[in-house]
Nucleic acid binder design. Structure first.
Lengths: 256, 256
DNA sequence: ACACTGACCCGTACGCCCTACGGACCCGGA
DNA sequence: TCCGGGTCCGTAGGGCGTACGGGTCAGTGT
């Protein structure tokens, strides 16, 4: 159960698939009428409902009522299929709304991204090379527009949106990891903590790791009682935005 | 080539392995003399040199000159082996140095983490549940100590170190993704950019994605000329630390 | 001296995976 | 009518993780 790399053999082929630079094919009369979009949709549904590890070419083909090898007429391999799934998923994001201050806009973008990843957890497990598909570019453009005209250089703008994206991804990844433990071990967060805290604190005694013990306990208690994931997410996000704020302020001063 | 989850069946078993809560076994005389540590070391070497996808129980056993199934005497399964590898790798980090300001310390921690992930890229591809092994706890304690006594609450301290860790991970993940493209496509960064920028800009015309075009071009040019990964990393890190700074300042004011 | 026990080691086999290859089928156009 | 080419897919080959059961031998109790 290690990780997935999406070697996706030929980048050129992947790009032409992503941008649909192939005519939509002849369409036979009687057959199931496979298309790239139907394949991507079926694969996405499968990955959403059963997890990325359940996603196999066989299962996708079965879901479509089609032989496994038929998929290879439309998609060079599994890697390229994953690339297509990722870009298609990014297509669900709203990339039009440009209202509000830069801070409000980045905040909205972060929450929307987070929701997308929660809906499609497999996106964060696919170590895709993030091949530039149309929807990913649209997302990038939309994010950049939020920090355009603030006095930042182009490279700084890129860094800024990467910063926010990275924060969202790492946060969701952690949450999903915890949920995975819960699901696979069959106990919820609270049960898990109650079962493994005692032996753990016995091993990692307070003397050796005093601060970790104290903070770990406090965090555990917070999780058990008033824990609010949204609040936790917001808190970190505001720290990130404060960092951006400092940058924006310094550039504004410099240009005055 | 999707992703790896480390289902690692029984958390209790994993924990006892991580904390070595089993006597070191009888050790037979003539045999190869397998141990958990030798297995973890061989697996780590393999993952370092050939990537996580090349890591299989068979290959690890071969590297040790041992039958595949012999590994299962020491390790319940591949998932648990990955857990052990991750915690062992964290053991390479220095968790003693406590000199300097909180900002200097977080900076040093971030750079050390980054270097560790670059040396063991597979760590970021293993979607491990981050089971609390001894070395991970030591790392956590060391990180918390950098922000202890600044007026932050325990939960805030946890958020803060998660924030820095998340930044490092997402940055390295992105870098490694790019390197993977380079390796697999056989061309270096510059070649890749030169090959795929023209068709890409043709597809994603400036009119549809004006800001992405402009910024993408600028970033590409920067990469080709004066690009300094360390500088890029530092830049974002300082933004994160600025965010932490704002938090620390606000808490200091509140308590005064 | 000898049998027993238990840890260590591993060959075999099952069921899954991705996909190369080549054949069957059928449509539209010449 | 014939044929080229797109669509569909059965078969097979080489991986993988690991369940199962049996072989081997150091140390122990007698």
């Amino acid at each position: 159960m290690p990780s997935q790399h999406s070697k996706s053999g030929d980048p050129a082929r992947s790009l032409s698939l992503l941008w649909r630079t192939r005519e939509p094919a002849g369409r036979r009369r009687g057959g199931p009428g496979l298309t790239i979009d139907r394949i991507v949709a079926a694969a996405t549904e499968l990955a959403d409902s059963e997890g990325i590890t359940a996603l196999s070419m066989r299962r996708v083909a079965d879901a479509l009522g089609v032989g496994t090898m038929s998929l290879y007429t439309y998609v060079p391999g599994k890697g390229e299929l994953l690339d297509l799934m990722v870009d298609a998923a990014y297509g669900d994001l709203d990339t039009d709304d440009r209202s509000g201050t830069w801070r409000e806009r980045l905040r909205r973008i972060a929450f929307a991204d987070r929701e997308l990843y929660v809906r499609h957890p497999w996106m964060l497990q696919v170590v895709t090379l993030r091949l530039l598909g149309p929807h990913l570019i649209a997302k990038y453009d939309h994010e950049l527009s939020a920090v355009d005209g603030l006095g930042l250089s182009d490279v700084e703008m890129d860094s800024t949106v990467n910063l926010v994206n990275g924060y969202v991804e790492s946060t969701v990844r952690k949450t999903l990891g915890a949920e995975q433990v819960a699901r696979e071990s069959g106990m919820d967060d609270e049960q898990w903590w109650r079962t493994y805290e005692p032996p753990l604190t016995a091993l990692a005694d307070d003397a050796r790791f005093p601060i970790a013990s104290r903070v770990g306990t406090a965090v555990g208690r917070a999780h058990r009682s008033v824990y609010d994931p949204d609040h936790e997410f917001s808190f970190g996000l505001e720290r990130v935005l404060d960092g951006v704020q400092a940058l924006v302020d310094s550039r504004a001063c410099a240009s005055d």
